[in-house]
Amino acid sequence: MSVRAFVLGEFASSRAALEALRVLEAKGWRDLDLHSPFPVEGSEELLGLAPSKIPIAVLCGGLFGAGFGYVLQWFCNAFDYPLVVGGRPPNAAPAFVPITFEVGILFASLAAFFGLWLATQLPRLHHPVFEAPGFESATVDAFWIVIGGEPEKLDRRQAERDLAELGARRVETVEGEP
């Protein structure tokens, strides 16, 4: 990935950060992000983020898992090596329900878990925003608004001034490969 520049501003409360995001958006800044210790209600709409696609992944995982669970049992006990147990038919659908259900849940959960890391592009060892001094507070009690852009195109002066005007108690600029 190419080098990108980030201008970060630290805000003391979620409400101040949301207000600042609204103003920045109105001023025409694009490529905004908010880093917060907990999910801030309303930030998704302001940042214009599309709804997460994880539910679709989970549905697919669950359906695939349930299908796989049933076919597995059918293949083993009815097709490859038919077994007669307790006079039940080889393809004993009611007896196959529990494992079908469990395998469905298992695959759906795996889809949710790994889908999350795929969607967030984590795990990663480093990100340029971590270089901003004081950024540790983003997981403690502060709300950091980040304006990103290509190093040549981003007007850092303007971004820094805007963030400071909106009440950021700290403004930092970093550059690096995200």
Partner: peptide, 9 residues
């Protein structure tokens, strides 16, 4: 890093 994009997922 607590990004809003990550919290959403």
């Amino acid at each position: 890093r607590g990004s809003a994009r990550h919290w959403r997922h």
